[in-house]
C-alpha cells in the first residue's frame, strides 16, 4: 500500500478512536457518576453471537424482498405521476402523500392486522425457501411504505433529464417506453442514486419493526428473545445489536459513495448545454 495512504488511514483511525474514547468517557462518567453498579461483561454477552448471525440473515432477506417491492412499485407510481391524464397523477399523488405521512409501524399494523385479516395468505415459497404470514405482510408493508418515497425520488430524477433529450429521442421515432428505457432512466439514475441509497438504508432499519407483530427471527427479534432476566447483559446485547445494523448499513453507504464517484465520471461526459 502507498505509504501516504497508510499514514492517512492510521491518522484517521487514531482521530476517531480518540474521539470515541472522549465521547464514551463523557457519557460514562455522567451515568456511572449517578451511582450505577452495573458491570460490563462483554465476554458473557459475546457468547451469544450465533443468535445474531442467524438474525442478520433474516434481516437481509426481509430487506431484499421489501426492496424489490419498493423499487418496482416506486417506479410504477413515479411513471403514473408523469402521465398526461391529470386524475391519474392526482391518484398517484394521494398514494404518495398518505404513505409518506404515516409511521412505518402504523402501515405495518394496517397491513398485517387489517388487510391480513381480509386477504388470506398463509405462506409463499420461492427459491426453495418458505415464508410465512408475518414475513409476507411485513415485506409488503415496508415495500409500499418506502415506494412512496422512492416514487418522488424517481420522479425528480426523471424530470432532471433535459427536455431536449426527450425531443431527440422522439425525433428518432422512439415511443414512450423506448424513450424511458434507453434515454431517460439511464441518465436519471445518476441523480436518483444518492437519495435512493438513503431509502435503502431506511428500509434495513425498518425491518427491525417486524418483532412488534410477532417477529420472524430477524436481528431485533433475536435480541428481544436473548434479553431475559437470567441473562442480564442487556447493555451489551443492545450495543452489539446496533453494531450488527451498522455492519449492514455502512457497506451500503460505502458502495453508494463508490458508485457515485464512478458515475461522477460520466457526469463530466455530460453534454455542454449553453
Amino acid at each position: 500500500m502507498n505509504s501516504r495512504v497508510l499514514r492517512y488511514f492510521l491518522w484517521m483511525t487514531f482521530r476517531f478512536t480518540l474521539a470515541a474514547a472522549v465521547l464514551i468517557t463523557i457519557v460514562g462518567s455522567i451515568f456511572w457518576g449517578i451511582g450505577s453498579t452495573y458491570s460490563l461483561e462483554w465476554d458473557k454477552a459475546l457468547k451469544f453471537l450465533s443468535w445474531y448471525n442467524k438474525g442478520i440473515l433474516v434481516t437481509i432477506e426481509l430487506f431484499i424482498f421489501s426492496a424489490i417491492i419498493a423499487l418496482s412499485l416506486g417506479l410504477i407510481v413515479a411513471l403514473l405521476r408523469l402521465v398526461p391524464f391529470a386524475p391519474v397523477r392526482d391518484l398517484a399523488g394521494l398514494y404518495i402523500h398518505i404513505f409518506r405521512n404515516l409511521p412505518a409501524l402504523v402501515v405495518l399494523l394496517l397491513f398485517f392486522f387489517g388487510l391480513g385479516q381480509v386477504i388470506d395468505i398463509q405462506s409463499f415459497s420461492i427459491f426453495g425457501r418458505n415464508y410465512g404470514r408475518i414475513f409476507i405482510w411485513s415485506v409488503i408493508a415496508f415495500g409500499v411504505y418506502e415506494s412512496s418515497y422512492l416514487a418522488e425520488i424517481f420522479r425528480a430524477g426523471i424530470q432532471s433529464v433535459h427536455k431536449t433529450q426527450i425531443e431527440a429521442a422522439q425525433s428518432l421515432g422512439m415511443g414512450y417506453f423506448q424513450t424511458m428505457g434507453y434515454v431517460i432512466l439511464p441518465q436519471a439514475f445518476r441523480v436518483i442514486l444518492p437519495p435512493m441509497t438513503g431509502i435503502m438504508v431506511a428500509l434495513v432499519k425498518e425491518t427491525a419493526l417486524v418483532y412488534l407483530v410477532g417477529g420472524v427471527g430477524d436481528l431485533t427479534y433475536q435480541v428481544r428473545q436473548l434479553a431475559i432476566p437470567s441473562r442480564p447483559y442487556v447493555f451489551e446485547f443492545y450495543t452489539i445489536l446496533a453494531a450488527y445494523y451498522l455492519s449492514i448499513v455502512i457497506p451500503m453507504s460505502l458502495l453508494s459513495q463508490w458508485l457515485e464517484s464512478r458515475l461522477g465520471i460520466s457526469k463530466a461526459r455530460r453534454q455542454v448545454v449553453d
Binding site: T164, Q165, E167, A168, A169, Y182, V183, P186, Q187, S266, R269, R270, Q271, V273, D274
Partner: peptide
C-alpha cells in the same frame, strides 16, 4: 438540433 442533443450516456 442547435444543441446537438446527443445522448451523453
Amino acid at each position: 438540433f442547435q444543441q446537438f442533443n446527443l445522448f451523453p450516456h
